[in-house]
Simulated assay, not measured.
Amino acid sequence: MKDILHDIITNKRIEVEQQKQAIPLQSLLAMGSERLDRTPHSMRAALAASPSGIIAEFKRKSPSKGWLHPDAKVSDIVTEYEKNGASACSILTDSKFFGGSLSDLQQARRHVNLPLLRKDFIIDPYQLYQARVMGADAILLIAAALSVEECRQLAETAHSLQLEVLLEIHTENELEHVNDCIDMLGVNNRNLGSFHTDIENSFRLASGMLAKAKTESSSLLLVSESGISDPATIIRLREAGFQGFLIGETFMKTEQPGETLAQFIGGLS
């Protein structure tokens, strides 16, 4: 079976090295000095306070589904997401596999006051500085792509930059990646190797995630990611202990993602 995650990470290592050579860290920090003064929003607090908990995602394509919305303008869609009740926005910044860019993140920051998650395959501290300079409030770390020690080091660096951390797991044994710098613990219902999606994965892992949250930190907030296509699923997930719900394709495959979000939230009441 083709391992898509392996292909993505292999490409990401090459991509990040090229970016570091093109714009060394000190140059990156100098370019973004004003933006580094901005106090980030708390995504964790926004999700905890929200009646919906929806992290609405901007992505143009996926490795499994191909192009969803190839001509999508991030400024238009995130503005509609904010207007129609999103608690936060997730911005895909991977170019080759998801059709995104750091420019999308920068544009989103200019247009909304919502917390922004940089969603990418983060393997190097340089990407955390990029995220902060481009306007992110939180970053995603994927347990399947990192060792336990790499995860800790990246999470600590993120916190030093005032970025919150969403750690994504897919299996119970990846709970060992949780550390005291993790703010939100997510379960991906999509297997990043095969891209097969099963929403029941959240329910299978919920009790273990809740137990880990109690052990590590009472403030750890649970997020369910991928495969959520109807409001009834969110109601069930809330009962299982989740407070955040990352939804992308359900919105982005439609002509008007913001309107689809509004209708979705309407179904929660």
Rank of each mutant, 00 (worst) to 15 (best):
D94I: 05
L25K: 03
Q127C: 12
S33T: 08
K96N: 12
A144P: 14
K119N: 02
E80H: 11
G99M: 02
D104E: 06
A30L: 14
K65P: 05
G32V: 07
L114G: 02
F97A: 01
A144S: 15
A45E: 09
Q21M: 06
P40A: 05
G99L: 03
Y81S: 09
G66H: 13
I23P: 03
L114E: 01
A143Q: 09
A136W: 01
A86Q: 03
S52G: 07
K20N: 13
Y126Q: 09
R109M: 07
N11E: 15
P40E: 00
L105S: 12
T39D: 01
T79G: 12
A45C: 02
A46P: 03
H111E: 06
M43I: 12
A143E: 08
H111G: 02
G85D: 01
P24N: 07
S101E: 04
E17M: 12
P115F: 00
I54T: 04
S52W: 03
V78G: 04
S42K: 09
P125R: 00
D124I: 10
K119L: 02
P63H: 12
Q106P: 02
P51H: 07
R35I: 00
Q19S: 15
R13E: 15
N113S: 11
S103D: 14
L105V: 14
P70Q: 04
T10N: 13
Q130H: 06
S90F: 00
L102G: 14
L28R: 01
A131H: 11
S50A: 11
K73C: 05
R109K: 15
F58N: 12
R13G: 08
I9G: 05
D71R: 10
V16A: 10
D71G: 13
I55P: 01
S42G: 04
A30P: 07
S95N: 12
R110M: 05
I23W: 00
T79D: 00
I23G: 03
A143W: 04
A138C: 15
L29K: 07
A72T: 10
A72L: 03
L92R: 01
R44S: 02
A22D: 14
R109F: 00
R38S: 01
S101P: 11
P24I: 02
D76Y: 07
Y81H: 08
R38L: 07
H111V: 14
C89M: 03
Q127H: 06
M31K: 11
A143I: 13
A136M: 05
A22G: 04
S27L: 13
L68D: 09
L25V: 10
A136V: 09
Q127V: 13
L25C: 12
L128R: 00
K20L: 13
I9M: 08
Q107I: 15
A30S: 15
P51C: 04
V112F: 00
F121V: 13
P40G: 01
E17V: 10
K12I: 05
A22S: 14
I54S: 03
S33G: 02
D76Q: 15
M43K: 11
S42A: 08
L140M: 14
R132D: 06
G53W: 01
T10Y: 13
Q130G: 05
N113F: 02
M43C: 11
L117H: 02
K83Q: 10
E17F: 14
R13Q: 15
K12C: 10
Y126H: 03
E80Y: 01
K61H: 08
G85I: 05
A143D: 11
E80P: 04
I9R: 01
L28S: 10
Q26L: 12
I9W: 00
S95C: 06
